[in-house]
Each structure stands twice: as structure tokens, then as C-alpha cells.
Simulated scan of single mutants.
Amino acid sequence: MSSSSYIKTIFWDIGGVLLTNGWDRNERAEVLTRLGVDLADYESRHEEANYLWERGLSTAEQFFQVTVLNQNLNLTFEELWPQVCAESRILYPECVNILGMLATSGRYMLATLNNESRELNEHRLNAFRLRPFFDYFICSGYVHEMKPHPGIYRAAIEISGHLPESALFIDDKAENCDAAAALGMQTICFESPGQLRDELAQLGLRAA
């Protein structure tokens, strides 16, 4: 493994590492069941609509118009959206602390590299006060491509201005880490805050 002096940029996933997922199956089942939405009908529409939404090719209101608001529930987007946002929570406070310590060190550029709609991404960065930790944001809703497609990693590498070998990527999904490694990035496949701290220490990046 490369030494910490060679790592220039640390890319962080958000959902599953720092926060709960934004609108995955469990989160949407909780909200939609409470609202009386037909889940089978919703799921039949989700994948096609989500392809556009998470890539920033449609808005949140357009997404929910296609998937939920067409079910004649006497429900408006303005009523639905706060309930969607309310499902997000800090998943691992210790990971947020590690992120903060790395940011405070001033040694590395820190960036997100996550799959999320533009609206949820902006809400979550602001609501959980994550924005100040990061220098920039590589989000599928901004760059119109999703992990594990190579395009989003290439965009991250090019925007960083450094070689892929100088980038460290932290994500909780093995397939996303494998895709990053295939382009030469170093990776940590996240399992727990303790494991993350240990693997950072092995790379010479001590968050303590």
C-alpha cells in the first residue's frame, strides 16, 4: 500500500458509511406504507424513474409524480417531500468524527463520491452539516452517471487533478470498490467504524 504522503484525495461514499441510505427499499417502504401507497405498484415504477432521478435527469417532483402521486391519494409533493427527507439519519457518528479529523488535518483533499439524486444529496449535506468537511462533491445527480460505472470514477479522478493511485475511495459496497480499484484507485470497503479506523492507520492516515 502507498504511504499517506502519496494519498492526495480521499473520496467518501455517504449512504451506508456516514448516513443511512437516502431512498433505498427500507426507507421508501417505511414512508409509503405509512401513506397508504400500493408498494407493488410503486416498485413496478421505481427502477425506470429512479434511473433518471439519481442521474440528475429528472427532478424529485417529476420522480414522485410518476411513482407515487399518480395513485390518487390526495397527497401533494410538498406534503410528501419532508417525509422522504425525514428518513435520513446519521448512521455512524464515529465515521463523521473520523471525517472531521481528516478534514482538520489539512493534509488531504476530501470529496464525496456517491449515488444520490441532486435534491436528496443537497438536503443531506446541509441537514447533517457535512458540507464544510468536503472540498468538492462528485454525486451521480451532478455528473449524470452512477457507481459502479467507470464514468463516475473517471470524473472524480479528473476533477481531483491527481493520479488515480493517489486517491483513496471509501464505500460500503464491494462492487463499487472493485470498480474504483480497476481504475487504479486505492480502496477501503467499509464494514464498521473500527475497521475503517484500522485500515486508515495501515495506510498511515491516523484519525485520532
Rank of each mutant, 00 (worst) to 15 (best):
A86K: 12
F63R: 01
S58F: 02
Y51A: 08
R55A: 05
A60S: 04
Q62P: 02
N72F: 15
V37C: 02
P82M: 11
N50Q: 11
T59H: 10
L73P: 12
D41V: 05
R55P: 08
T67E: 01
L73F: 06
D38H: 10
E78A: 11
W81G: 03
F64K: 01
E48I: 07
T76S: 14
N50W: 15
R55L: 05
D38Q: 11
A40K: 12
L80N: 07
Q65M: 11
L39D: 01
V84I: 15
S88F: 15
D38I: 09
H46P: 03
V84W: 11
N74H: 15
S58W: 06
V68K: 12
Q83L: 15
E61L: 09
E61D: 03
V66F: 02
R89N: 11
Q62V: 08
E79Y: 14
P82D: 01
L35K: 00
E47Y: 13
L80W: 12
Q65Y: 04
V37K: 04
A86S: 15
Y42C: 02
A86T: 06
Q65R: 11
D41G: 01
F77V: 07
G56E: 00
R55K: 09
W81A: 02
L91Y: 09
W53H: 09
A60W: 04
E47P: 04
R34Y: 12
E48H: 05
Q83T: 13
L69F: 09
L69D: 00
L39T: 04
N70E: 14
Q62N: 03
F77G: 06
L91D: 10
W53F: 15
E54Q: 15
G56Q: 04
A60M: 08
